[in-house]
């Protein structure tokens, strides 16, 4: 079995108002050094795939067709073998 961890983030060119609001809140905690805060999503799942390659292919396809919208989002993932 394999385990995929996918992060989906707004592309750098897209304004992230939610991230901005949270950054302001962090500043009011006193952490003025924090900047460029962005909020994304974490998706993880197990895959009953025969090989690492197959697990990666399935993960990639899920990212492309569903988990991320390429107009506004970038994705990255890791696939690890699990017992």
């Amino acid at each position: 079995m394999y385990h995929s961890k996918i992060t989906v983030k707004l592309r750098p060119s897209i304004l992230d108002p939610q991230g901005k609001a949270v950054e302001h809140a962090i500043h009011s905690l006193g952490a003025a050094a924090v900047h460029d805060l962005r909020i994304g999503k974490l998706v993880e799942f197990d895959i009953d795939a025969a090989t690492q390659q197959e697990a990666e292919r399935i993960t990639e396809e899920a990212c492309k067709k569903l988990l991320a919208n390429p107009v506004m989002e970038d994705y990255a993932f890791t696939v690890e073998k699990r017992k």
């Binding site: 897209i14 304004l15 108002p17 939610q18 609001a21 919208n69 107009v71 506004m72």
Partner: peptide, 16 residues
């Protein structure tokens, strides 16, 4: 938009 019948996306309102 998500179905690809029209181009583009909807972002969160700028006012949040």
């Amino acid at each position: 938009l998500e179905a690809g019948l029209l181009p583009g996306v909807m972002l969160r309102n700028r006012s949040l």
